[in-house]
């Protein structure tokens, strides 16, 4: 396809401008997290901290027990991730590599739940967990991940499994393999990259989850980073140096995980189908 030099130059300029707009909030976050309050409030604003107040991070992360919040978040994130990857791939296998009557109808019904607002199931789920005596524990946040791991992930994996040639399974059947062996020995090894995508989505989903912990967790000692940050904001309203340091500390792990996994990530979003 031909693209004129002028189009390219204009496009390039526009991309630079847009990227600047997307990245400035990060720069502002970082710069504020490393300044003392007097420099933060200087007008016109300064961009380079002078000197660099690395101790903001230490202060922000020790005033409130962010170490505990970090561990708590990690416990939830890892437990959810394991459940999601295992059960969504098993389910996706059953919805794509096994022929059975009513399969696509059942899948369609499950897919339709994506339109259901979380608000509808929120209150009964809350009451149910409370009745089981599991309010103020992590069970309500973790257990659902072991039952399919979310329809979106099943959908993503199913899309991928449908592209693997049938012959592989047929050949294995001839050799006397069971469905479970096909899943473990053929499908799983082939779907490494898409499983990484599901793991990444799951990581970000539970790392960023706010409403879940807000509703199910009451004790400060069980707070996640998201809740902790929100509480911090309520207490240290105008301490922008500490607020920004704490925010930066919560954002950083996400950014690192994303940058490591981004190759798979963008592949995965492409996989959501939309072949038209």
């Amino acid at each position: 396809m031909r693209q004129s030099k002028l189009t390219l130059a204009a496009g390039y300029a526009a991309l630079l401008l847009i990227s600047a707009m997307f990245i400035i909030p990060f720069v502002w976050l970082l710069r504020s997290s490393l300044m003392d309050l007097s420099q933060i409030f200087t007008m016109p604003p300064e961009w380079i901290p002078k000197p660099f107040h690395w101790d903001n991070f230490h202060r922000a992360l020790t005033i409130v027990p962010f170490g505990t919040f970090f561990t708590n978040t990690l416990i939830i994130v890892v437990s959810v991730l394991v459940g999601t990857v295992v059960t969504s791939s098993i389910a996706a296998f059953g919805f794509s590599r096994i022929q059975w009557k009513g399969r696509d109808t059942v899948f369609g019904i499950l897919m339709s739940s994506m339109m259901l607002p979380a608000a509808v199931t929120l209150i009964p789920s809350f009451l149910g967990w409370k009745m089981l005596g599991l309010y103020d524990t992590y069970y309500p946040l973790i257990v659902p991940a072991y039952f399919g791991g979310g329809i979106f992930n099943i959908f993503l994996l199913r899309q991928f499994y449908l592209t693997i040639p049938r012959d592989f399974d047929e050949a294995a059947f001839v050799d006397g393999a069971t469905y479970f062996q096909i899943y473990m020995r053929i499908i799983m090894p082939l779907s490494r990259s898409v499983l990484i995508v599901v793991a990444l989505f799951s990581f970000l989903g539970s790392w960023n989850d706010f409403m879940g912990p807000l509703i199910y967790v009451k004790s400060d000692s069980l707070f996640t980073l998201a809740l902790g940050l929100q509480m911090f904001q309520g207490t240290y309203t105008a301490q922008w140096d500490l607020l920004m340091a704490a925010s930066a500390a919560v954002v950083l792990p996400c950014v690192i995980v994303f940058l490591i996994g981004q190759r798979y990530f963008l592949e995965g979003i492409t996989l959501t189908g939309l072949k038209g």
């Binding site: 919805f95 072991y146 039952f147 399919g148 099943i154």
Partner: peptide
């Protein structure tokens, strides 16, 4: 294979 997802639903 799909029972965890169906039960979850």
């Amino acid at each position: 294979f799909t029972s965890p997802a169906i039960l979850g639903f």
